[in-house]
Design a protein around this nucleic acid. Structure first.
Lengths: 338, 338
DNA sequence: GAAAATAAGGAATAGGTTTTCCTTCGCTGA
DNA sequence: TCAGCGAAGGAAAACCTATTCCTTATTTTC
């Protein structure tokens, strides 16, 4: 890198260096207009030599575009929103679009503030993401740019949200456990007020019903914590000492469940199989044994959300409603067939 | 929000609506110039009514400023870089500066690419952050904008890096354990090739030496994993069955250590105290008992880095070298005095 | 009552780039 | 010989805002 390049070069200087007018320089660099090949080469050489970079502000001003989008999260860019974000960045980066990052810390005032700021900056679209897929208030109706919700859901039907298929994820776990020969399957999960928890439980129950069976007792709704996983496992073992598998609403819960199972003398996976949800690496790998779990494909969710946003920016009619993305199962020790 | 506002309003329209010239409108909105109060009010009212927002591209073009900075990370915005980022965002947001997010996935090609893009976008500064504080190649010498490394360290002495005081963190843990009456203190930590691991070990050893004692055996260098924590604890217990405390290089290691201690019949904190490093909530709280740990104050690191960047942007002479930020101790059950 | 000062606001310029429209020049064809 | 054409590239407008410099009208001061 040339350290003497403190001064920012403009196309004017390039034009002067090449001995042409500004307009001609622009045409040469952008492959427009009718120019002699020699001229074109002379201009590009000058631009190269001077380290010219077109000023995107001037370009944007002229074209009325900024090639930027805003990414708003309340998750403090946590475990869920980050993979989403990375997926989105992939899709956007390919389109030469840069991303403004805004963390609202789940504060509606801050959120409003950030949205204002993004609009002032003339972003061409906004992606909203969150900590859980629960419905949340719309970020604002009738905004001048398209908005896509990813890994969170707008309460308004007019908005477009991309979320994981929790029900399908539950079913996936159920069918896997059945396929490994477990019949009596318990379920320890998060608070019932969470749609995600309810849908995962439904997926489990429905898949079992399809196979002509049912879960071992009602789903145990509690907290999204390891501590609850430990308690839940105790409750489950007392009510159903013959349980053969436990499907858990999160990897953290699964970790608590695994610990209690072990402490109560159950071997995993020989006596009891365990399936988690989230595929959160540090949890899943710290588990003993390593945990089979459902992956929500967060990156995919982000990518799809970004692609929809790009299409909307491109003028496609805005999508509405909810799009669910299939989950996938990641196999590890905790459900191995011995 | 008015949904009929698809068209973006310019100051020209505001001026027309208020019956004044463009220049006057600008002055009215920015509180410059000599204007009658009534005129000023008329203009602001018109701007309000039309939903006028000054175009930042035009402003930037004119002022030669963009009020943006780039944030480059190789951590995939993981556990370490996120808090740093949030701290930075705090400091920058206050200055009305927006942040472009770039994840390099630790790929130098991508990194170079992103830096180019950021410079093309005329960011006023760049923050580089990472997964660990290890020295890394400079992002480029003689860039036209100031660069600050946060939670990572440039290999070049000409750059400026802000990192946690690992040595101090180790000393903090040591003194706390001594204060709770533990004398024989073991250390299980990450790979020796990591500067962070070596410094934490040094901090421990030095603080113990100051108190006229020494650690229980050499530091056990291994991996940054729970699995290593379990193994390390076994090794430690075999060599020093009378160990009274274990200082761990990370919370994950501490978690593994705690498990093994329990399984070997040691009660925490009654028989053996445990201190972790990172204060990573899900790990620390899933631990049994909850873990006393060293917090690197990542948010503070980000904030300080951002403040230095702002100063450099403001024209202050660029700082060089390394600035360390003190760690703090977070007390929980695992070192309680019974 | 005239000169000077002040208040209020308009006109014009700058900032960097792209694009549209012109100009110039050499050449072709009738 | 001259109208017409294509090639090559220049001039200027446009994008939007902030600021500097003017102009005009009103008020103050002697």
């Amino acid at each position: 890198m040339s350290s003497e390049q403190a001064h920012v070069v403009t196309i004017r200087e390039v034009a002067a260096a090449a001995g042409v007018s500004i307009g001609t320089a622009s045409k040469a660099l952008n492959g427009r207009g009718k120019l002699r090949e020699e001229t074109r080469a002379r201009v590009t050489a000058a631009a190269e030599r001077l380290g010219f970079r077109p000023n995107p502000l001037a370009q944007g001003l002229l074209q009325g575009r900024t090639y930027t989008v805003g990414l708003v999260t309340g998750d403090s860019f946590g475990r869920f929103s980050i993979p989403v974000m990375l997926g989105a960045e992939d899709a956007l980066g390919a389109g030469q679009i840069s991303v403004f990052m805004c963390d609202t810390r789940d504060d509606p005032i801050r959120e409003q503030h950030y949205v204002e700021r993004l609009l002032a900056r003339r972003v061409e679209g906004i992606i909203v993401t969150g900590r859980r897929t629960e419905p949340r208030p719309s970020i604002g109706a009738g905004l001048p740019v398209p908005v896509v919700y990813a890994m969170t859901q707008s309460a308004s039907d007019d908005d477009f949200s991309v979320i994981p298929d929790d029900r399908g994820g539950g079913a996936l776990a159920a069918r896997h456990l059945l396929a490994t020969g477990r019949a009596r399957i318990g379920h320890v999960t998060g608070p019932e007020r969470f749609e995600a928890a309810r849908r995962r439980a439904e997926g489990l129950t429905d898949a079992l019903a399809e196979a002509g069976t049912g879960p071992a007792g009602e789903p145990l709704f509690g907290e999204w914590t390891e501590e609850w996983g430990r308690q839940g496992a105790d409750i489950l073992l007392r009510a159903h000492p013959d349980v053969e598998a436990v499907f858990c609403g999160s990897d953290q819960i699964a970790r608590g469940v695994s610990e209690t199972l072990r402490e109560r003398g159950r071997r995993i996976p020989d006596d009891v199989a365990v399936v988690g949800f989230d595929n959160w690496e540090p949890m899943v790998e710290g588990c003993r044994p390593p945990l089979t779990t459902v992956d929500m494909n967060l990156g995919e969710i982000g990518r799809i959300a970004a692609e929809h946003l790009l299409e909307a920016i491109g003028g496609a009619p805005r999508a509405r409603g909810v799009l669910t993305v299939p989950c996938s199962l990641v196999l590890r020790e905790s459900t191995r067939v011995s």
